[in-house]
């Protein structure tokens, strides 16, 4: 296992030096069981503002379960998920449902693997992007539409597609629309579940490029779940490798990928085909 502790201490010190209050998201011993089976077990980490955390592992390793626990879609059996609300670390599991849902549509974003899960397919692209704004009280049509146009531009969707429904979009466009819809309220934390899954490689590359630009530009913090090592190599600052519900290795992305310590990580890294 790589030395995650001293690394954490380092970033902590760095942020203190910059006058930052503390981690954005603090995960403490999160465990989720499905009956006798383990979904994920004893996962702890801190996510600092502006940091991107990658979670990799094979199918069934518990990475999606973990993400759903963090994002409030599932409630873990043990552990705490502390989120920094106005400088105050708040246990998201003890929030009322109204507060949690408000958080989920303002300060958080969730990008689904399948854009159909995250979009309203019967509503135009503009309506999809504007929904979060209207959900938080925007009542001026012109301004909502201007924001939608701005965001479609930022995710490289032509302005004349604003009144088309997502069902008329290609898979890559749907995924970019989903990202626009999520980021329009300027969230601080984005959860992504296999954001490039199901896209062909050239579309994947463009999407990654776009995501990297947005993450840097907006100073987003993100937790990205993927089985694709190239995705984390490009996007993630830090990496967690999961196997059988447990975190087997974590550390800086390049460090983990170039010098894997755990047997499973070595297997994972060596399984990637070199084109």
């Amino acid at each position: 296992m790589s030395d995650g502790k001293s690394l954490q201490g380092f970033s902590q010190g760095l942020c203190k030096g910059l006058g930052r209050p503390g981690p954005l998201l603090s995960v403490e011993g999160v465990t989720k069981r499905y009956g006798a089976r383990i979904g994920c077990a004893e996962v702890s980490f801190d996510l600092w503002p502006g940091e991107v955390m990658g979670i990799v592992g094979e199918s069934g390793s518990g990475k999606t379960t973990l993400l759903r626990c963090l994002s409030g879609h599932l409630s873990p059996d043990e552990g705490r998920v502390l989120y920094d609300i106005d400088g105050q670390p708040t246990d998201t599991l003890t929030l009322t449902e109204a507060e949690r849902r408000r958080l989920m549509r303002t300060d958080w974003a969730f990008v689904h693997q399948n854009p159909r899960d995250g979009l309203r397919m019967g509503v135009s692209a503009g309506g999809n992007v504007g929904e979060r704004l209207m959900g938080t009280g925007a009542r001026h049509y012109g301004r909502i539409r201007a924001a939608a146009l701005d965001w479609l531009d930022r995710v490289e969707i032509a302005a004349d597609r604003i009144d088309d429904r997502p069902s008329a979009f290609s898979g890559g466009m749907q995924q970019r629309l989903q990202i626009a819809r999520n980021l329009v309220t300027g969230p601080r934390l984005v959860f992504m579940d296999e954001p490039t899954g199901g896209l062909d490689v050239s579309v994947q590359a463009r999407l990654l490029d776009l995501l990297r630009g947005l993450v840097r530009e907006m100073g987003l913090s993100a937790v990205i779940v993927t089985h694709d090592l190239a995705v984390v190599r490009l996007l993630a600052d830090r990496l967690m490798v999961m196997q059988g519900g447990h975190v087997v290795e974590q550390g800086l992305t390049d460090q983990v990928l170039d010098d894997p310590q755990h047997a499973y990580t070595q297997l994972l890294v060596s399984s990637v085909l070199q084109a």
């Binding site: 135009s124 979060r132 209207m134 049509y141 604003i162």
Partner: peptide, 22 residues
């Protein structure tokens, strides 16, 4: 029902938005 309980009525305006857009 949950939307009524939590007073989440943004979706109603999405419908009106769609009207104006179209």
């Amino acid at each position: 029902r949950k939307m009524h309980a939590l007073e989440e009525y943004g979706l109603m305006h999405v419908k009106l938005y769609e009207d104006i857009a179209r």
